[in-house]
Nucleic acid binder design. Structure first.
Length: 256
DNA sequence: ATGGTTGCTTAGCAA
């Protein structure tokens, strides 16, 4: 099974790139974030023609998450019990290929100390509580998405420059660690303990040409599923060229 | 350098 996650930063603005990427990489499951559109405006038909079913939790202008899959996603759930603000579409989950797959878009937090920052920490704590209930040792689960936190300094090109940011602050890292503490494994880290590989580069600072990036997009899995992973990589090439998202896709492969 | 770019929506917000 090939499982991927990608913050596309508007699914409509990225549709041609998305279709081309699916054609090249043929994932079994792709978690999307920042759709920036309602369910009605989601381009389900061209994706269906490309061979993918979609479970969508959309929102006008902001946020929005989806799961694309070769087989029709079953038991789709939008939001989660304990979600601090139901109006923000930041989490969807579905049963696909025998795995309970989550696509998550963690709040950015804007600025440390701001209301958005408090909301980010609150949202991560609520997600942790939900996953503590949802994680079952006997059932494979994958938590994928733009988690908007770099796990540690291996995941940051310039750790000093980002140290006090909402993406690296100790409180955010502790909150993200909470997701692993319920029993989830960082699949990418398993295959790249050395670090130095990123999934997001700021548009504003023109970070990509300097590879001034952070690893913010993650694939977490329950231990038995994690044991089956054979590779994980960032498709850095997708960040190149005309009109890229500011995030690159992250892909993991699992054996039987 | 409180800069810079992008997308949605239409001047301002979020990232």
């Amino acid at each position: 099974m090939k499982l991927a996650t990608w913050n596309v930063n508007s699914v409509r603005a990225r549709l041609e790139r998305l279709l081309a990427w699916l054609d090249r990489h043929q994932p079994d499951v792709l978690c999307l974030q920042e759709l920036k559109c309602t369910d009605d405006a989601f381009p389900a038909e061209p994706l269906r023609e490309a061979g993918y079913h979609a479970a969508v939790h959309g929102q006008k202008t902001y946020n929005g998450v989806a799961i694309l899959a070769r087989r029709d996603p079953a038991d789709v759930r939008r939001g989660f019990p304990g979600d601090p603000d139901e109006a923000q579409a930041r989490l969807i989950s579905a049963e696909v290929a025998g795995v309970r797959v989550f696509s998550a878009y963690v709040p950015n937090g804007r600025e440390v100390g701001s209301p958005s920052w408090e909301y980010k920490l609150e949202w991560l704590a609520a997600l942790r509580a939900h996953l503590a209930d949802a994680c079952d040792a006997n059932r494979p689960l994958a938590m994928c998405g733009d988690l908007n936190v770099a796990v540690d300094d291996r995941d940051v090109a310039r750790p000093d420059a980002w140290a006090d940011s909402v993406l690296c602050h100790e409180a955010a890292r502790r909150a993200l660690a909470g997701l692993r503490e319920v029993g989830l494994i960082d699949i990418f880290r398993k295959h790249h303990p050395e670090g130095g590989i990123y999934s997001w580069w700021d548009y504003r600072q023109l970070g990509f040409p300097r590879n001034d990036g952070l690893r913010l997009d993650h694939l977490y899995a329950t231990p038995a599923l994690a044991d089956r992973s054979t590779a994980a990589d960032v498709d850095r090439d997708e960040r190149k060229g005309n009109k890229p998202s500011d995030h690159a896709p992250v892909v993991a492969v699992f054996g039987d």
